[in-house]
Design a protein around this nucleic acid. Structure first.
Lengths: 173, 173
DNA sequence: TTGATTTCCATTAAATACCATGTTATTCCT
DNA sequence: AGGAATAACATGGTATTTAATGGAAATCAA
């Protein structure tokens, strides 16, 4: 059973904003939508609240519930909770994959990330991102720039090491 | 039960990118895929995110889950987590061995490591690597160069010694 | 009613399943 | 132990299915 978003896929966006969700992503959305069965099409949530990111984020139902639960665990009426609710609840929209495997990106969403004819989908484990292909490439180059220094690369991969995970996980910004 | 990838194998890659997974590697993939049984074919994950490496890495499901779990343990939206998700989730693809024991390497993957007619599989314990045979040979020579100095070789093998592992494990490269 | 959104249908390119063959390795029987 | 029978592998070719995508019809809304 596939349960993490993986890989990079570039699909066409037509004049109406329709775009195919990569088939492998649909499999994840299906298994992670508690209401889904073979006769239905899976739901998902698009979050556009991470303004600086340059992309829109797509969440499976199960995955967005985990985020929602974390928000709900924060003190009611606290400033930080209200900010998170704005960025992740106000600035998001629930939608559903259609029978051809597509969703519609509204013109507002498309303008927000500068999408014209093509959208790049990047698997990010528990979520995925939708990018303008050029912006994505730039972002990827920034990442390679960061890990160009072997010391820095090693420090990041060390986070995946059982021995070091505890002493590093609290200060990884 | 076989549980580590071992050995070197060179197999043909046809025009469609199809290539046989060495049988002994399939035995590992089978025992390390929680969903597998005698009637199914095992899944695996190919990671191409370690750009400088010159190869693609193949992970069993169990093996990649360990990596995924450690990524998921990092703080959501942290810079380091998103870098790791890019390198290991965006830059990877889940696939399945077919009934003839093959997988297909997309043209993108083949170009990435310069594979034309043949692919070399190198067992690396918990993962395996796929190389252009010539690149692999060069890489092997680099390794022999490093351990040519007996002192260096001994220092590296010392890492396998319980008495020394702790004081070396933090600066092990 | 007309502009926008959603549903339905059609096409083709690509991915996958299926089948066949020669070769090597393994099993089993005498 | 030798040799025949059997199974497993690697690999090539073909058929079928699925995915992506464009366009038309139908529904909804202002």
């Amino acid at each position: 059973m596939i349960k993490r978003f993986r890989g990079e896929w570039t699909n066409k966006v037509d004049a109406k904003g329709r775009v195919s969700i990569p088939a492998s992503f649909r499999r994840v959305l299906e298994t992670c939508d508690p209401d889904w069965n073979e006769t239905l099409f899976p739901s998902l949530v698009l979050v556009y609240g991470r303004k600086g990111s340059g992309c829109i984020e797509g969440y499976s139902i199960r995955s967005i519930q985990e985020v929602d639960d974390m928000i709900s665990a924060l003190p009611r009426y606290s400033k930080n909770r209200e900010i998170l609710e704005r960025l992740l609840n106000s600035n998001s929209v629930q939608t559903q994959v259609d029978e051809n495997g597509r969703i519609v990106l509204s013109s507002k969403l498309r303008e927000m990330i500068g999408i014209t004819g093509e959208a790049l989908f990047a698997g990010m484990g528990e979520k995925f991102q939708i990018w303008n292909p050029n912006s994505y490439q730039k972002n990827m180059l920034e990442i390679f720039e960061i890990i160009k220094d072997p010391g820095s690369e090693q420090r990041i991969f060390d986070l995946l090491d059982k021995k070091t995970i505890n002493k590093n996980s609290d200060k990884d910004d």
